[in-house]
Design a protein around this nucleic acid. Structure first.
Lengths: 346, 346
DNA sequence: ATGAAAGCGCTAACAA
DNA sequence: TTGTTAGCGCTTTCAT
């Protein structure tokens, strides 16, 4: 049994109310004599009193906790696998939340039998919904939710333009890649993607590729879009010397881009002089492979931070406008789009 | 204002007690007529009733939430940076916790002004302490804590042999590396480490290297331990053809191992034929670099899962014995310790 | 099978 | 400045 306000009150010869005021109220509002306050503090310290957060949360109807959710129906996002989207996002969320005194909770109910129960049961003051794949079901869930929500990794229109969203500007990122290649003198530019990764985001990147190429006066035909299957046979077929028709390739994600580099070299092509390659996500290993991989970088950490800031704003009652926050990507230029070979330190 | 038990009770013409029994009690214990139960369920559904978790937690003195902490005084562990230690650990923790219906919370109080208050304020049913660096201060904190604790990434003796711990068997992992190299015929084996990463774990690996080498009848002198500074000059100095005296190198971490591969190649050495290299952590990029990097792999996911299982066991009142759980490492053999060159698919 | 009543620890309106 | 009182929503004896 742990020490309660009452115990402290008894020891200090006051009522629980006074103890509460001394220990937990904001200094400005408290009106307790210095002597009493001191007595209370000493008693609390001697007894080793700690506030019961559950009781307080219950009473105050707020938890100072933010819940982080993810789209249902798909596997829970992994911190460690893939291009660290979720991991870096979480770093940004946690960082911002902690700055404002909020905890961050990952909640299982949302993945279990009755996910909807997790939404508005008083557990969270607000939610960050990491949307993997927008769906009608998801939207219905959100509508039943009684706490403020911010959605990450989706467009406001995909959720009925009803919730604040935060997402990286994928098209703009592809624009950077296209522009960079054109500046380097390339005109035969292809776009490669994984046949198994034809999700909304990949398609958005592909569309942006078409758009920015057209904007630069370059036509894109179907043969400029290289779709690679799981067996990677298409990759090797495309890279046979007589079939290689591009001088540069934008790849929808870093993993496949890395495979492109290795395979290209195996086929006797030099990267970047025969084929320049740009990936997407600027994953950690971009610096470890040779040549290092030029890649579009999403501001993942800031995405998480911005989502959290918007949520805290929303929880404070401030309306969010505009609803959608589009954070620009940057281009990390590395060896796979340069013609200079890496040099030894002199 | 949200719907409470009372509202449902009124609508179903029963008392809150009955509603509670129907909606939240385990089926086996409930003794309510089927008709009443149905009436209650309908009412609850119509009203869109959701249990108030804060009230329940408060009442039941349990939160079904596990807190994840980290050593104080150092930066909070990042999900995304480094060799994903924390990220993968968290995946394991979250996975196991969710299986048992527990939520996982990352808590700021523990990093703020009064970190000790977060420990035993009723917020968590149990804690997983991710120990970055054991310290006397940390130990004192833990002693004040009233909920069960499991420590990850530390030895039981570093915390007074008082708390269950879970850690990867680093020495055994190094043993695998040494054995593998010896099996390949190597006898001139060195150990390289980052001068800036001389932490407990690195030293443990170095000691294990000495131990296992001795066990194999190979003497290790100071010149077999290569300490690389931030400027990496030592790396290039070591790799000049006339100075290279080893045929194989175990590197304390993958990042430096990757740099070894690149630098060795720049200096005209072939990896693995002139110099075989083994890293530690089996980071994702081990498969992306060429040659791919053989590396010792810590069971990080299982480490998190085991910690969680031990905690749940402990919260259930079962004593943990033995206190320290040592999970074995494995060796992911890749190209940097093979003599066969990578081949094109035929 | 159902109801009445008490209380978890805390805070805040109101009273003194 | 300090105390009294009530109640947040829920569960759980103990009655009926």
């Amino acid at each position: 049994m742990s020490i309660t306000l009452k115990d402290v009150a008894k020891m200090a010869n006051v009522t629980p109310t006074v103890v509460s005021r001394v220990l937990h109220n904001k200094a400005s509002t408290v009106r307790v004599s210095a002597a009493t306050a001191e007595r209370v503090r000493v008693a609390a310290h001697q007894l080793g009193y700690r506030v019961n957060v559950m009781a307080r949360n219950f009473r105050e109807r707020q938890t100072r906790t933010i819940g982080v959710l993810n789209g249902r129906g798909l596997a829970r996002p992994s911190f460690a696998k893939g291009p660290r989207y979720f991991a870096t996002l979480m770093d940004g969320i946690v960082d911002a939340a902690f700055q404002h005194g909020y905890s961050v909770t990952l909640c299982p109910q949302l993945l279990g039998e009755h996910p909807e129960e997790g939404l508005s049961d008083g557990r969270f003051d607000g939610l960050i919904w990491y949307s993997i794949e927008p769906s009608y079901d998801t939207l219905r869930e959100l509508e039943r939710c009684s706490v403020p929500i911010v959605i990450v990794h989706a467009h406001a229109k995909d959720f009925g333009v009803r919730y604040p969203t935060v997402i990286a500007d994928n098209p703009q990122g592809i624009g950077l890649a296209v522009r960079h290649l054109i500046d380097l003198g390339h005109s035969r530019i292809g776009f490669a993607l994984d046949r198994d990764a034809m999700n909304v985001e990949t398609m958005e990147r592909l569309e942006a590729f078409r758009f920015h190429m057209a904007g630069a006066g370059l036509t894109v035909t179907e043969s400029d879009v290289i779709k690679i299957g799981t067996d990677r046979l298409g990759l090797h077929e495309y890279l046979t010397p007589e079939k290689l028709v591009h001088s540069a390739m934008i790849v929808h994600a870093d993993g496949l881009a890395a495979e492109f580099i290795v395979a290209a070299q195996e086929h006797g092509h030099s990267v970047p002089s025969d084929l320049a390659i740009i990936g997407f996500d600027s994953t950690e290993f971009c610096d470890e492979i040779r040549p290092t991989l030029t890649s579009v970088s999403q501001p993942l950490f800031d995405l998480g931070g911005s989502a959290t800031h918007r949520l805290i704003q929303l929880m404070g009652g401030t309306p969010i406008d505009p609803l959608e926050l589009l954070l620009p990507c940057s281009l990390d230029v590395r060896g796979s789009t340069l013609s200079l070979p890496p040099r030894l330190p002199s």
